[in-house]
Every structure is written in C-alpha cells, then in structure tokens.
C-alpha cells in the first residue's frame, strides 16, 4: 500500500501538478517579484524540489495552499537576495487587457512599492493569506503586518494619484 507521499512523488505526477497549479503559482511569484525571469526561476525551483518535499506533505490543508506558501517563501528569499538592486524597469509589462492604461498604471505603482510593503499587500489583498500567516512567513509580528498593509495601501493610492495628476 503506497503512502500518500509515494503516491504523489512519481515523475508523471510532477507534470500533472505543474499543469494544475503552475499558473497560479507563477502569478503569486510574479506579483511578489515583478519580474518574469525571477518568477520562472521560483516556479522552476519549486517543481525541481517537489518530489522530495512531497514526503513532508501531510495532506492537512489543500495542496494548492501548501504549494502557494512554499512559492511565497522562495520568492521572499529571492527578494532578500536582490535587495541591493534598484530596477530601472522593475515591472515587465506582459499582455494587458481589458483597459491597458489602467492595468499598466496599477502594475507600475505596485512595482514602485518597496518589496516589504508589496509583499504584505500582495499576500493579503490578492492571495488572501491571513495576517497571522503573513507574519509567520515574513518573520514579523501580526501588528507589523497590519501596519505594513496600511502603509502599502496609502502609498499605492498616493502613487496612483500622482500618476493621475501627471
């Protein structure tokens, strides 16, 4: 009788998991990193390490939630690593629709936030993580997570207002 981990660790299962989850995971990584290449690297690393990691998967929560948390941790690690880099073209526009002006403007504003603020904003408002989960992933307190979210929203609104006036 195969264990859950053994059932999940076959090479063909990796492809199946990729087909089912990679799109959503790429979205999480991209929104945090605002770089297609970095997001691809994170998703690549996740699936390269997945067969071994699946042995630690306990099937208590959903597979997608578990994978998303790992992607977030990988992306945050990458964000820390590139802290010395100031991107001139930090947002790499991809296909835009249905309102290209609005989408690109919001994308640029999101990219202009500091990585620590953007991380909380993305994790809370887009990915739906709780402040407790965000605090654990970032190594900060719940209160700090709440403060960062408030600051991120205020800065995002200010950035969009500046763009609006320009």
């Amino acid at each position: 009788m195969a264990t859950p981990a053994e059932r999940l660790s076959g090479a063909d299962v990796i492809e199946d998991l990729y087909r089912r989850h990679a799109g959503a995971l790429m979205a999480v990584a991209y929104r945090l990193l605002m770089s297609r290449a970095d997001a691809e690297d994170v998703v690549h690393d996740l699936f390269v390490g997945l067969p071994e990691a699946l042995r630690r998967y306990e099937e208590r929560g959903s597979m997608e939630h578990w994978l998303r948390k790992i992607v977030v941790r990988l992306a945050l690690s990458r964000l820390r690593a590139r802290r010395h880099v100031t991107l001139q073209e930090s947002a790499e526009p991809v296909a835009v629709s249905p309102d290209p002006v609005a989408r690109v403007t919001i994308q640029r504003a999101l990219a202009a936030l500091s990585p620590s603020l953007r991380a909380v904003l993305v994790l809370k408002e887009i990915e739906g993580f709780s402040h407790a989960e965000i605090a654990a992933m970032l190594g900060i307190s719940v209160a700090a997570s709440e403060v960062r979210l408030h600051r991120a929203l205020r800065q995002l609104r200010a950035l969009l207002s500046e763009d609006h006036r320009a």
Binding site: E15, Y18, A22, M26, H44, I106, L110, L121, E125
Partner: peptide, 19 residues
C-alpha cells in the same frame, strides 16, 4: 484591480526546464 494585473503564463518551456 490588483487581481486583474496580467501575469506571465507557466508554459511548456518552463516545464521542460524543470524536467
């Protein structure tokens, strides 16, 4: 609006790189 920001796809090229 944030959720609507377009993101790149996870395509077959990336899967091939993983494999």
């Amino acid at each position: 609006e944030l959720a609507e920001i377009p993101v790149p796809p996870a395509d077959d090229r990336l899967l091939a790189r993983v494999m």
